[in-house]
Design a protein around this nucleic acid. Sequence first.
DNA 1: GATGAATGAGCTTTCATTCAT
DNA 2: TATGAATGAAAGCTCATTCAT
Lengths: 216, 216, 216, 216
Amino acid sequence: MSSAFPVPGDSSSTVDDAAPARAPRRARGQLRVEALLSAAAEVFAGKGFDAATMTEIAAQSQSSIGSLYQFFRTKEAVADALIRQQVDALWSRMDGLAERAPVLSTAELGHALAGCFVGFRADHPSFATLVERPGPPSPFVASVRRKVRERVEAILVRHAPAADRKMLHAMAPVVQHAMKSAVQLRGDLEGAEFKAALRELDAMLVGYLTARLSAR
Amino acid sequence: MSSAFPVPGDSSSTVDDAAPARAPRRARGQLRVEALLSAAAEVFAGKGFDAATMTEIAAQSQSSIGSLYQFFRTKEAVADALIRQQVDALWSRMDGLAERAPVLSTAELGHALAGCFVGFRADHPSFATLVERPGPPSPFVASVRRKVRERVEAILVRHAPAADRKMLHAMAPVVQHAMKSAVQLRGDLEGAEFKAALRELDAMLVGYLTARLSAR
Amino acid sequence: MSSAFPVPGDSSSTVDDAAPARAPRRARGQLRVEALLSAAAEVFAGKGFDAATMTEIAAQSQSSIGSLYQFFRTKEAVADALIRQQVDALWSRMDGLAERAPVLSTAELGHALAGCFVGFRADHPSFATLVERPGPPSPFVASVRRKVRERVEAILVRHAPAADRKMLHAMAPVVQHAMKSAVQLRGDLEGAEFKAALRELDAMLVGYLTARLSAR
Amino acid sequence: MSSAFPVPGDSSSTVDDAAPARAPRRARGQLRVEALLSAAAEVFAGKGFDAATMTEIAAQSQSSIGSLYQFFRTKEAVADALIRQQVDALWSRMDGLAERAPVLSTAELGHALAGCFVGFRADHPSFATLVERPGPPSPFVASVRRKVRERVEAILVRHAPAADRKMLHAMAPVVQHAMKSAVQLRGDLEGAEFKAALRELDAMLVGYLTARLSAR
DNA sequence: GATGAATGAGCTTTCATTCAT
DNA sequence: TATGAATGAAAGCTCATTCAT
């Protein structure tokens, strides 16, 4: 599991900017960074990237603004570090799913996929905020989006090794967005309505996967 | 067709803020407002609401900031007026669809729905930017989102008057999001990949509607 | 005589940065810009470019910080505009000298050159501060330094048209620096000592010019 | 040869500030201090005093900021220590010249003076940066400048014991600045142009000294 | 003693909004 | 009315300096 800081060879991040001012070398620094990122997650989730302020992030984590900038050169860098951290959690969920993919029925796979993303985004509400931030995406964000798609595709491939690869490739982004929708529903609806809509979404996804993957 | 300015009885907008500084009384003013809004649309679409600046909007429409503020009291007011204008175009598309809904096959309805939203958002790229702006939505934006859902539901009802109303109510948001996904795909994919994914999305939607609405 | 703002075709300044946020278009703006620049001159002269703060410049000119930035995008831009303004005054002094150069004796030319620079720098104490600012010079500053040298050379050429051009070319920077020294002396010495040193400097310059230019 | 740290009786420096946090007591400390100062010299020379940062100085010398502050209480103190160290080298050059002054011809003295300063400043590029730092000079810097002048004067006195003392006193700062110019030329010119200008400067200085000192 | 972390005043810059001509 | 100018709160960020391990 990688840390919130980019590893040297990781070419997917802007070299100069996303790098930390200094990676923490002491236990205290580690704790600080964690507090900082968790505060950032809260603030970003609450008001979005643009409206969030570094001052508020620092305050939320009981740090001084200087401490925040000791570890993150820019606001962008905070967002990138946060995404990096959360993406790890997403990968492990998806890897788990990938392993089970061959032995699941298509319906079960649909449920699992939906559950995977809904659960993840519920645990990390800032992820969507940052990854779907308005304006042209940064190279780093674009790479994350691409990787998610690739992993979805990989899961489909493992589940249906015999299926046409081209088709699976086209299906991946659709499945990805269906799962994203599941999360966005929560913003629009409440309680019973939300649950009902979620069931419908699940039905749509499962129906789609079944039609495509079980077809002979 | 309503103008970009709220009608007196429209309680969905903050009374004081969304009102224009002065509704244009002459043809010249009308043109100015249109130029302003079209410039705003461009800027909002390009960088999102937060990153857009009033100065840039004014410049883009060859006006001075003074003029901009003559017609819109705040940046929010510009966004609201823009949404109001675009929503009119959306309503007319959906109303057209609603009329044809009874005579369309379910598959045709699915295609039409997808086409409706994809076309609309392609014509008005700032709409999504503003309506899905991060942070808690304003009452006005929330009302727009709700109304879209209601119109989708109305279309479904007209198409399948015999279907269970509860189910249709739950389907509406799912259909709405599926169509939103269609637009977002464009940001992630290009050319052939985008087309293929769009076809899959269409298939998913049509399959879902068919399963739900044609079922006896 | 050019204003403090760069003319469109002037390629010697960084296109994007040295340009004003907006050239003043109203009388009030003109006055403001003048006040701003004169305040900047005072502050820069007193503490140097780095230690000067935009806040202090604004305060010194009774303006708000916003007004300062209305006309100058960056601190650099303020410095550049100031140099541009002052350079005009220098050019007119040097042009006057150039005209008289042919009819002056070499000794008179020496006195006049020294007087020209000493007078100019006494009137514009921030000029040296900005043009000799530590660190690698900006392209604009480098171009100013070069132009001063070229004008000194032109004066020498007009005074001694028969002299070897190569030699005059080599003399120009030496004369330029001698004059610069005249100003710097003021920082080190006071009253009578300063006057005596200035006389010596004058003697050195005149002696040098005489030796080089009157030589047959 | 004095160390970089002020001697107890040296009243020319601010008592509290220029003193080291702790004078190095061991060989390791000595090395550290030297590395620190040489790093500081590099950074100061490259960007000037203001733009140089303590962090960069520490990094450049492979030390931590903590270590830097262990030996120098403030950034000013670093600069002062550096000047103190470099001034030693200057003194020894000038002392050598003073000894030879009586037996040199005036022309030789001129060459030697120019060579002395040019060589020194080439070896210690940060010296000028620090000693001619913009803004009102600190008492310590002012004293250094004064001492240089006094030593130049002393050399002149030794070379021409019979000359008028008042005149020599007035000549010293002129000679000092001529030598400073020699260094600044390097910033403006390159290669052949620089060499030619240097020859002219040398000629000017030698001519001046000859006129003043050989005169009967 | 050496080092990384912590601090916060203060800097440059932006921008929505209001004024004045 | 149209437009440039004025304003200042607030943002992102820096960096000398001090602390704590």
